[in-house]
Nucleic acid binder design. Structure first.
Lengths: 297, 297
DNA sequence: TAATTATGATAGGTTTTGTCTATGAACATT
DNA sequence: AATGTTCATAGACAAAACCTATCATAATTA
């Protein structure tokens, strides 16, 4: 059976006339005759009672027509939702980011994207890199802002921003007197870290292990906010992403902030998504907006 | 768009794999690839995100699939109701008969048809010939038991029974002494007739005008039952169909019954229906049962 | 009653669509 | 690097839909 046949049936039922129905369907009258006969043959039932005066539905034809209208309604609905969705900048856009980025970036990004792509329905989800990657792979997420290069073969990334890292310390700390900080200058035993699972912890730890021989502290907390509070309370020092500074999170009287000199003391923010994603154009446009927000603040 | 394409979409969505879906649909994998691409092209939307690992639905694909399932459900329903209805002795059978037949015939006919055709859903409607003919023509009725030959060109009839006519009179009436009655023997001024619209009135009047010069009475009532009551009360005589007699309606102590001698004093009962009716087999079987009931009582 | 008109069915040929096999390209796994 | 898996592409072939021309039958009109 063909959807076209159901359209023909509907037309014949409405016009009660093969010729007019054919005209309405933009086909010839024999086409309609033949196709309806085929439909009737496949169903094993006479749907239309033919007269020279009027073609009328049989009782079973009425029932079939009612169901055909249901089917055609669903098909029409498919056409209408896909017509809307053929605009690449419409529909849901589900993206995530990691906890060490989202508080500084996402509020602004949501605002800008909402303004630039008003037909886009934005859905945001915060999680650690591992979970976001899973969600990307199984299709629950369209994109994620990550700070780690994509190792998963099915994913790819557009670079957004190379973010410097900053040292924060209590104002009275020895570090306050040094001008140009390097990792080797840091008292690593005083370092407050994020707990396992945060990619930013791994990056910090790698950086320290690479550039300093001092033993790392084992103090760890679950959020940058807690780190900042502890530093403000004079409980240690830490390394935080520059965005935390430019977003005003470090504007506290008890905290000093200094950049790290090393060129490797940065993290690379990327917009990561499936290589197979059919929404490349949208993803690139979104990445461009995000990069602009990051550059221009 | 083709219903088959929706089946393919569903299969790919379920198996998340073109090859397995193709196997499931009994077609080759390229067929599925090509057809899905065509579907996506006509809709202007990517429905499936292809990976070497799994083929997964895009968000719009999910929505389209949901609607496709609706459409396929309706199509399945069409197949299932038509499979049931392909039995010619199933479904609704809507028939009617005129008031001067139905009380004697329909109770028995309903019983017999219900027994012989248990899958048939019988719907009965009593009305005068004119209304029944209208209902036949516009398709609201499948058949009607009428006592008039079909004049309408689009209708045809199967003869059921040639029914004699009987004279009824009050027991003390003059007619009681005559043996073999003819219309010309009847005192037409005492005749009680049915009201206009009943074909049986017309037939009676025609018969009397043809075979007698006496002026007809103008007394008329709306039912045979009233006629019988009036005759029983000694208010006149009448002509009634033989079925009224054989059905026991005339078994009253005050009423005498005699047949009319004339060979034209009969009415022909027919099963009338549209020439174009697609249910010829059923109609003929039904007519046969009705004729049997009429013959065998 | 006969001619005319209207309607749906049928036949034969053309175009469009669907399907197959064979093969290719991209990626994942060994 | 080699192998295997997966979907896409190409070209040939088959099926289906469609069109024009024509027919048969019924309804209408002369």
């Amino acid at each position: 059976m063909n959807i076209r046949d159901l359209v023909y049936l509907r037309a014949i039922a409405r016009h009660r006339h093969f010729g007019k129905a054919a005209e309405n369907c933009n086909v010839s009258q024999p086409t309609l005759s033949v196709q309806l006969q085929k439909l009737e043959a496949t169903l094993g039932v006479i749907l239309i009672e033919r007269t020279k005066r009027a073609a009328m539905l049989t009782p079973i034809g009425e029932k079939v027509l009612a169901l055909a209208e249901d089917a055609l309604g669903a098909v029409d609905a498919i056409h209408s939702i896909t017509a809307d969705a053929s605009d690449p900048f419409s529909g849901q856009f589900r993206f995530g980011s990691i906890p060490t980025i989202s508080p500084f970036l996402v509020p602004k990004v949501l605002g800008v994207l909402g303004e630039k792509f008003p037909r886009l329905e934005l859905v945001f989800r915060e999680n650690i890199t591992e979970r976001l990657t899973e969600d990307l792979l199984n299709g629950d997420l369209d994109a994620a802002i990550l700070a780690t290069p994509t190792e998963t073969p099915r994913l790819m990334a557009i670079p957004l921003y190379e973010e410097p890292l900053m040292v924060i310390y209590p104002l009275g700390h020895d570090l306050a007197s040094l001008d140009d900080l390097d990792v080797s200058d840091l008292p690593l035993d005083q370092m407050i870290l994020l707990t396992e699972g945060h990619c930013f912890r791994d990056q910090t730890v790698d950086l320290c292990r690479l550039q300093s021989k001092m033993t790392l502290s084992e103090t760890s907390v679950t959020s940058l906010e807690t780190i900042i509070s502890l530093v403000a309370a004079g409980q240690g020092i830490s390394i935080v992403p520059a965005l935390a500074h430019s977003s005003g999170w470090l504007d506290r009287p008890q905290i000093g902030v200094k950049p790290l000199r090393s060129k490797t003391a940065t993290r690379q923010l990327n917009l990561t998504f499936r290589k197979s994603s059919p929404r490349r154009a949208l993803l690139e446009a979104v990445a461009e907006q995000m990069a602009r927000v990051l550059r221009e603040g």
